[in-house]
């Protein structure tokens, strides 16, 4: 082929691309705020309605006819409901204290023990978090019946504590693993005994995580239904179980009042989780630990 070659082209000067559209910066899709808004509406609208109708002066669940505290009064006049509320608070308090103590100790063992079983223990510890609660509940029931332990508030507490330990451990372990070992060595170096180091340095450093874990277990235990239902005795029953038996005979606005109060208590707990570390002069909040933010 003897095609005449075109004269060698000038070194191609890169033509600047036509100044059509400037490159589009990454836009947040418009529908995201709508999604988020819808999420909040679906989540909170029923709760708001329950709270609203708890102040309804009539028994209607459709029409709001006027403000009254009638249903709250009825709740506090109903002795068995009141006993259930007290029982639930007792269960949640005992669960919180015991599970926090045990879970924190377990976290220490998992992070600090240089055992060849540590790896397996770390995984086993997570099992309660993924076990269907119904399975845990039935197992607990079978166990209590087999060993002849009369079902009562104590059996509910034991079941709740067992179930809650893992939650505490997960929260505290993360904080403990992030703790600089030199900080504890510094305390030993400065003359603190091992016990003194734990008391004066390690626990204060873990404090936000421990507070967060405690409040979390209180909330979990307070509104738990499945475990409570299977492990409780005749009377008094934990509040969620008591509510369940009540609505079998029809939903009354008293239920709305109870729901609103439980919601208020939970909200107060969250507020406490935020405020407590600050009141103690710490910038971190327990809530920050839960949502994965170190400083609030």
């Amino acid at each position: 082929m003897s095609a005449v070659r075109a004269p060698a082209a000038e070194p191609p000067v890169q033509a600047a691309p036509a100044p059509s559209k400037p490159p589009k910066p990454f836009d947040r899709p418009r529908f995201l705020p709508i999604f988020t808004g819808a999420f909040f509406v679906f989540m909170f609208a029923p709760i708001v309605i329950v709270a609203l109708f708890s102040f309804n002066s009539s028994k209607s669940l459709q029409r709001f006819e006027g403000f009254s505290l009638e249903w709250y009064r009825r709740f506090f006049e109903d002795e068995s409901l009141r006993e259930s509320l007290v029982a639930s608070i007792q269960i949640a308090t005992v669960t919180m204290l015991a599970a926090t103590a045990l879970g924190t100790m377990l976290a220490f063992a998992l992070v600090r023990a240089r055992s060849r079983w540590a790896g397996s223990a770390n995984i086993l510890m997570l099992v309660p978090l993924v076990t269907p609660e119904i399975v845990a509940a039935v197992s607990a029931l079978v166990l209590f019946t087999q060993i002849g332990w009369q079902l009562s508030l104590e059996t509910v507490m034991v079941a709740h504590i067992t179930f809650s330990i893992s939650y505490v451990t997960v929260v505290v372990r993360a904080r403990l693993a992030a703790l600089n070992p030199e900080v504890e060595q510094a305390a030993l170096d400065l003359g603190a005994t091992r016990w003194g180091t734990l008391r004066l340095v390690t626990l204060p450093e873990l404090w936000p995580a421990i507070v967060a874990a405690a409040l979390l277990t209180f909330a979990l235990s307070f509104d738990d239904f499945v475990l409570s239902f299977f492990t409780t005795g005749e009377s008094p029953q934990p509040l969620p179980v008591r509510i369940y038996s009540a609505i079998r005979f029809g939903v009354t606005p008293t239920i709305n009042a109870i729901g609103t109060m439980m919601l208020t208590v939970s909200a107060l707990l969250i507020l406490l989780a935020i405020m407590l570390p600050r009141l103690l002069g710490r910038r971190e909040s327990g809530l920050g630990v839960l949502v994965g933010r170190e400083t609030a």
């Binding site: 030199e182 510094a186 170096d189 003194g196 450093e205």
Partner: peptide, 29 residues
């Protein structure tokens, strides 16, 4: 044990006690 030895260490990471102020850190020993 370390807490009875008459030596003190300045650590590479400083290892200050975050929950205590400067005075309390220095007064610790």
């Amino acid at each position: 044990p370390p807490y009875h030895r008459n030596v003190n260490t300045v650590f590479q990471s400083y290892a200050l006690f975050e929950h205590l102020d400067v005075t309390a850190n220095v007064a610790f020993g």
